[in-house]
Design a binder for these strands. Structure first.
Lengths: 192, 192
DNA sequence: CTCGGTTGTCTAGCGGTGCTAGACTCCGGA
DNA sequence: TCCGGAGTCTAGCACCGCTAGACAACCGAG
């Protein structure tokens, strides 16, 4: 069975290579540049190989999105774990979220702007996505305020962060005042 | 000169037809279905005619976005003008904004999700876009709170609305609690 | 060790996209 | 009446996502 195991391992390696290459290419030149032809060339295989791993380009985007969600969750937890006090924690969370979106625009797009064929807000939602929301909930639940459902509050806070992230990156909001907007967001939305 | 005037008028008519048809098509079948071939067929001209009016598909999207911005501004003003009291006015504004995004998804995408080649947050920003932001500012400026710059507050409130609109429509947030999230948004962000 | 069959990969190509070069038609003005 | 330019069209380019079918390479049975 060693031969089959080796083949399976190599296949898994190649799948990771595809996802990593797609992400790298998207981060360098944008998702428009991630064509199946260029991606195939970069991994040094022909196009059909991609389709033996994924149903299509959409699924590749979805795979990058899942990877990104796991990273986002870890980033948020790392940013908040060492901080004392709800206010400082929520501020750190907001900064970490916006920072992640700014540093990983392609991954952020894969998660929230593009169609990666993922299911949200549902029991069928993939684990990494639920976990990323969970990471938000952990810090935000404690500042929802009395009588406010923590999940609902987290959704609102998240939507605000998402709006700031996308509008800023699309040039709809001047980047200079990001920090001021973040502070205002935390001051107003969180009950401290 | 009457002949030239007639030609100019006909040309302007045709341009409006292109934009209206693109919008209609996008609203019915999504922007993916708005191909230059189909659009040309619908207006009963050949493809190159489109390029005698616009530099490319991007500019057509941009034209729809500008039209939409003017409508959004009018919608927001209409929704708030007849309402007394800052709180009720801001609530009406938020509802009108989210309602507009839900009723005109293709137009909303043209404005904020797709690349229409428009310039934002700049002195070169086209008038309708500045005016739509102005319509938000008119109602939101009065609830920014002491010592908070009305423009900055409007940006934040807008970002929150935009986040709610996009995440809800993309299936990232359950639509059922939209009203609750809207109320929470107004209660927390606005200083009444 | 050889051979057959499966598994894996490739070449080539389909129907679509946005966009454009160059041919042609048509019409106003001299 | 005829010319010239404006306006429109046909045809086609280079690219896209995706796939059928040919081909090679390798594993297990005899």
């Amino acid at each position: 069975m060693s031969v089959q195991e080796r083949k399976q391992r190599e296949r898994a390696d190649r799948e990771r290579l595809i996802v990593a290459t797609a992400r790298e290419l998207a981060e360098q030149q944008g998702w428009d540049a991630v064509t199946t032809r260029l991606l195939a060339e970069r991994i040094e295989y022909s196009q059909p190989v991609l389709y033996s791993h994924f149903r299509g380009k959409r699924e590749i985007i979805g795979a990058v999105a899942l990877e990104g969600a796991a990273e986002l969750a870890a980033t948020l937890r790392a940013a908040t774990s060492a901080v004392d006090g709800p206010r400082a924690r929520v501020t750190a969370l907001a900064r970490a979220y916006l920072d992640f979106a700014e540093r990983n625009p392609a991954v952020y797009d894969a998660m929230f702007q593009l169609d990666g064929g993922l299911i949200f807000a549902n029991e069928d939602t993939p684990e990494p996505l639920k976990d990323a929301f969970g990471a938000l909930l952990e810090s935000l639940g404690e500042v929802a305020g009395d009588g406010v459902h923590p999940g609902l509050f987290t959704e609102l806070f998240w939507a605000a962060l998402h709006g700031l992230a996308t509008l800023t990156r699309a040039g709809r909001l001047p980047p200079a005042e990001t920090e001021q907007r973040t502070r205002l967001l935390v001051d107003r939305l969180a009950v401290l």
